[in-house]
Simulated scan of single mutants.
Amino acid sequence: MRIREFAPQDWAQVWPIISDVVRAEETFVYDPALTADEAYDLWVDVPPGRTAVAVDGERVLGTAKMGPNRPGPGSHVSTASFMVAADARGRGVGTALCRDALDWARRQGYAGMQFNAVVESNRAAVEVYLREGFTVVGTVPGAFRHPTLGRVGLHVMYCEF
């Protein structure tokens, strides 16, 4: 597996990953009625941001987007989001994408990386982020409506460089 920059021809494989994750309503705060065009505009970042894919040969296993967390006085802190194909989970794809995003942010001179809304029941992602140096700086109780668990918290997580 390798991580590389997103190319427009990747969209045919990236969109099904995004669609599946969003429609499951378990880990992202995106509208489940999100269209492919809306998702493209939301996910594919332009500089100073970046979109990447994890590939095995020609197959896209996962994707990441990263960039400044906020504009202006908050632009020294980065953020990132990750999605992995259902059949590629548990194989280190999310970890590789997270490490790639952290490396990218450090090279760009960011002071740290902040995740604004990590669903606390997404244990696999939370464990990856903790292993990679993030801490939970706060949790908004009941801020996410999970389809089977009901209202669960959203973590704000931060990794200082």
Score class of each variant (00 low, 15 high):
47 P>T: 09
34 L>T: 05
128 V>R: 07
38 E>I: 05
105 A>I: 07
85 A>P: 11
38 E>N: 08
134 F>I: 10
130 L>W: 06
63 T>R: 09
67 G>L: 03
50 R>P: 03
112 G>N: 01
141 P>K: 05
158 Y>N: 02
45 D>T: 14
117 A>P: 05
159 C>Q: 12
89 R>H: 08
134 F>A: 13
46 V>C: 15
73 P>R: 04
158 Y>Q: 14
16 P>L: 07
44 V>K: 14
19 S>A: 14
28 F>W: 07
134 F>D: 07
20 D>W: 10
5 E>S: 11
118 V>K: 01
108 Q>K: 10
4 R>I: 01
130 L>I: 12
136 V>W: 11
128 V>N: 00
10 D>G: 01
93 V>N: 09
65 K>Y: 11
81 S>A: 15
116 N>Y: 03
45 D>A: 15
110 Y>W: 02
161 F>Y: 12
119 V>N: 04
33 A>Q: 12
72 G>L: 09
108 Q>Y: 01
35 T>A: 00
31 D>F: 05
46 V>A: 15
101 A>L: 05
18 I>K: 08
54 A>H: 03
154 L>S: 02
140 V>F: 14
100 D>Y: 13
87 D>K: 11
158 Y>D: 06
112 G>Y: 02
159 C>P: 04
76 H>P: 03
160 E>I: 13
91 R>M: 12
92 G>C: 09
84 V>E: 12
103 D>H: 15
50 R>W: 03
114 Q>R: 11
108 Q>I: 04
9 Q>W: 03
7 A>G: 13
65 K>P: 09
138 G>I: 00
156 V>C: 10
101 A>G: 05
23 R>H: 10
80 A>Q: 04
60 V>K: 08
143 A>F: 01
58 E>C: 10
12 A>G: 05
113 M>L: 13
40 Y>N: 09
65 K>Q: 11
21 V>Y: 02
14 V>A: 15
70 R>F: 11
48 P>E: 01
155 H>G: 03
34 L>Q: 01
72 G>R: 05
157 M>N: 02
42 L>N: 15
13 Q>H: 07
55 V>Y: 15
25 E>L: 04
7 A>L: 15
93 V>E: 12
26 E>F: 08
96 A>Q: 13
47 P>M: 11
82 F>I: 15
128 V>S: 05
73 P>K: 09
15 W>C: 02
38 E>Q: 12
159 C>R: 14
5 E>I: 10
129 Y>W: 14
46 V>E: 14
21 V>W: 07
78 S>C: 09
98 C>M: 12
117 A>H: 08
39 A>F: 06
103 D>P: 03
144 F>N: 00
119 V>I: 14
30 Y>C: 05
48 P>Q: 00
131 R>S: 08
161 F>A: 06
129 Y>S: 13
146 H>R: 08
70 R>I: 02
26 E>G: 04
43 W>G: 00
129 Y>L: 14
154 L>D: 04
143 A>L: 06
129 Y>D: 08
132 E>P: 02
144 F>R: 00
108 Q>F: 06
151 R>F: 12
98 C>V: 14
59 R>D: 14
88 A>H: 13
148 T>R: 13
153 G>H: 00
6 F>H: 09
101 A>N: 08
83 M>G: 14
68 P>D: 06
52 A>M: 11
105 A>N: 10
43 W>E: 00
76 H>S: 08
22 V>I: 07
